[in-house]
Write a protein that binds this DNA or RNA. Structure first.
Lengths: 347, 347
DNA sequence: AATGTAGGCGGAAACGTTTTGGGATGTCAA
DNA sequence: TTGACATCCCAAAACGTTTCCGCCTACATT
């Protein structure tokens, strides 16, 4: 079956009527509609999407860009798959489908995005892991493609995003540790070019200073947010002259590497050193001693993300009257054994 | 910028020439081409893919179907992301892009697939986790959509697939355990409707019988291939009157649940019970004692999968003259501590 | 009987692109 | 001067669909 034309010829009906019958339009005889649907079923006819979306100017598909580099794969854990469920729950209501666009490791994400946007196979895009200055944000803004981001950015002024409450996490982690007597608290973070890396450390700094603890740059450990980065962070921690009594991790997966290195060095986690993690990574759930960390529901995040996007698309805005606001996602502390001790005051 | 027409008008050139200039066709003046490219860049023009693929009848996109149910998310670990890298490496050579199609949890995968195929947004499909009787395979075969599968199936006779060497794994696992004196060996498997569940157990049966050990159906534990399933498998193991001395897991993630349940029961893994896992799951790498398991490179699997697919697409067949054969992927044993003991012979 | 109305249908335009066939111009050789 | 040929470009067709507009018929109303 080639197309609607052959179907119409076979039925001896005009193609316009066939189209209306298939799409549930009103002005078509029920008997005719029945025949059309039966014939379509019989021949396995389905409308060609290229023709359809050419005519209609929309594809009913939302794209989710992800990175498929080896490193990203190792670290992503099931972040994207988790968010996907929430997104689809929102999109299903509008009969929208979700497509994941994996950017190859060896390609510039911006070039890739440009190509995918050019394909017009999506009506809108979702990007994540935004940088403080992010060319993708500029690109999408200029191209007037509706989009939403996971993570804020300084680029392009005002755009729809959902972000995790890094500031709150750093603040609460510090508060918790300080309340237990810690005074020397290390923190890990990615490069300050990544928005997360900047905000996280700033919040940490403000909070310790509020408690009268001077900010010590040597306690800010800039490593990759990966298992390997955790290992290295522990290594650097051990090199410090005046060793901290606690460390805050920006990514839970780091805990795996960090634990390993610390165990090698004979440090007892939860006794000699307190560890607090951040963000949910299934692999890290099996650590001993159990990790105190800030958790979140990827599903719920996906829902918020989807709503934020749709609220910024003309065709769906009406459904989400107050969904246009950007959301800072709170995280919940799941206490574990890794920071379950108090430091006695020192002279 | 609306389209090629406006661009042509602005340049005072016909749209045909603009198209040829942009697509690198030969018969266009280099000066003209330069002007066109400059103008396109200036206005940010990119060809509408709907129009293009309507005309050309192809999209240069390959779809990879994945399941995004909560359960699938928990279990998939980074299987898909890993395979994706390998696929893209193959596809990049032909300027093909890869799209991941996540089937919503509450939708019939076959209906979803039908919808996505109907969209014609992909030239070919890749599916995974095929059943012994798989409607998706039938659907794709009938619709004459090129496709390849991870996992064999009895449906639709001859079609392109890549599969893991379940038989070899079960056989080698049994051999290894038998060599260490084990006579009562349990095995886990999904329902025998899943091809894997059937083949895995059959191979296990053949191998133990070859060693003169009678097949005992009560040692075949049918549970889900998940952490939860592992927990339950351990539970059932403990219920058995005559307890086995070894267990073969079909999926590494199960080991996490299994370990937990066994530890609760005070069973010493690698002393009282030998455990062998199968297939790589990053989360399971951090178990204590370390798990003996069969590993594989998801990247390499992706490459084989991509080649198998292209070898079965007319437009690319020539590039892979011997790629049309189906591949049974071997796995490599990574020895750990979980089965590092011998059973002394019993009277 | 004349008019109005609704249902049902066909014809044709439009979406944006690529591609084909052919036309115009210029150059070179005979 | 003519013809052959190459270069460059234009016009138009085609891809498959949806949707607008208007026509026809049947029926109800006056």
């Amino acid at each position: 079956m080639k197309g609607i034309r052959q179907l119409a010829e076979h039925l001896d009906i005009s193609i316009g009527t066939v189209s209306r019958a298939l799409n549930g339009k009103p002005d078509v005889n029920e008997e005719t509609r029945r025949r059309v649907l039966a014939a379509a079923e019989e021949f396995g006819y389905v409308a060609n999407q290229s023709g359809r979306s050419l005519r209609q100017g929309e594809t009913k598909v939302i794209g989710l860009m992800i990175e498929s580099s080896q490193e990203a794969v190792e670290n992503a854990d099931n972040f994207f798959l988790g968010v996907t469920s929430g997104l689809q729950h929102v999109f299903a209501r509008h009969k929208l489908d979700l497509l994941m666009l994996p950017c190859p490791a060896d390609e510039d994400p911006c070039e890739y995005l440009k190509r995918m946007v050019a394909r017009r196979v999506v009506d809108a895009m979702i990007i994540s892991n935004t940088q403080r200055v992010d060319r993708r944000v500029d690109l999408l803004s200029r191209a007037k493609i509706p989009f939403a981001a996971v993570g804020r950015s300084l680029s392009a002024g005002n755009f729809p995003w959902v972000d995790l409450d890094f500031e709150g996490v750093a603040e609460r982690a510090v508060e918790r540790l300080v309340a237990r007597g810690h005074r020397r608290i290390a923190i890990t973070a990615p490069s300050s070019e990544v928005n997360l890396g900047y905000v996280f450390v700033e919040s940490y700094r403000r909070t310790i200073e509020r408690h009268g603890i001077p900010f010590d740059p040597s306690l800010v450990i800039r490593v990759k947010s990966s298992e390997q980065g955790g290992y290295q962070a522990a290594h650097e921690l051990l090199q410090l002259g005046h060793r901290p009594t606690a460390v805050i991790l920006i990514y839970e997966l780091m805990a795996i590497g960090l634990y390993r290195r610390l165990m090698e060095a004979g440090i007892r986690i939860g006794r000699d050193l307190a560890v607090i993690g951040f963000r949910d990574a299934p692999r890290a759930r099996f650590l001993q001693p159990s990790l105190s960390c800030f958790r979140m529901s990827l599903y719920d995040l996906g829902i918020a993300l989807g709503q934020t996007l749709l609220a910024n698309m003309p065709a769906y805005r009406a459904f989400y009257p107050d969904g246009g606001r950007n959301i800072v996602w709170p995280l919940e502390l799941a206490p574990g054994q890794s920071d379950a001790f108090e430091v006695e005051a020192q002279a």
